[in-house]
C-alpha cells in the first residue's frame, strides 16, 4: 500500500502540478454540485472544471451560487466553461449557446475564490448581480 502511495505521488509529481476534477454539467443541480465540489476541501483534487452543456440554466433561488447572498467561499481553483455537447466530449465556444439566468433581486453569482477562477463561454441573460471577490 505504501509503495502504491509513493507511486501515486511520483505519478502526480511528474505529470502535472495540479489534479483536476472534471464534471459534465447538464442541469442546475449538477451545476450546483460543481460549485459545491470547488467550495469543499477534498484533498483529492486541486481544481474543478465544470463543463457546462449548451442550454438554459435558471440559477434563481439556488444558494449554491451565492451563499444565500453571502459570498460563497471557493477553496479550489475553478473553471466554468460553457458550450459543451451532451456528453461534454466536444465544445463549441459560442457564448450565445449556454445561457444562465437569475431573475431574483439578490446576487445570482456571488463567489469568493481563494485560488484561480475562470468563467468562459456563458451568456448571462438579464442576470441580476454578479460578484466575484477574491
Amino acid at each position: 500500500m505504501r509503495r502504491l502511495f509513493v507511486m501515486f505521488l511520483l505519478l502526480i509529481s511528474t505529470s502535472s502540478p495540479a489534479q483536476d476534477l472534471s464534471l459534465c454539467v447538464g442541469n442546475v443541480s449538477q451545476f450546483a454540485s460543481a460549485i459545491d465540489a470547488a467550495a469543499g476541501n477534498d484533498p483529492g483534487f486541486d481544481r474543478v472544471i465544470a463543463r457546462v452543456r449548451t442550454g438554459t440554466y435558471d440559477l434563481s433561488g439556488s444558494t449554491a451560487f451565492s451563499g444565500n447572498n453571502v459570498a460563497r467561499l471557493i477553496n479550489k481553483d475553478l473553471v466554468i466553461s460553457g458550450g459543451y455537447n451532451s456528453d461534454c466530449s466536444a465544445r463549441s465556444l459560442n457564448s450565445f449557446n449556454t445561457i444562465v439566468r437569475n431573475t431574483t433581486a439578490t446576487r445570482g453569482l456571488f463567489l469568493a475564490p481563494i485560488g484561480d477562477l475562470t468563467i468562459q463561454g456563458l451568456s448571462f441573460d438579464n442576470f441580476e448581480g454578479i460578484w466575484v471577490r477574491a
Binding site: 457564448s95 475564490p113 477562477l117 475562470t118 454578479i130 466575484v132
Partner: peptide, 24 residues
C-alpha cells in the same frame, strides 16, 4: 500565491446591478 480571475468569451446582456470582479 498569485490569483488569476479570468472572465472571457461571455455575454452579459440586460439585467440590473453591478457586475463586479475583484482580485486581491
Amino acid at each position: 500565491v498569485l490569483t488569476r480571475i479570468e472572465f472571457s468569451n461571455n455575454r452579459v446582456f440586460g439585467g440590473e446591478g453591478n457586475f463586479e470582479l475583484n482580485a486581491e
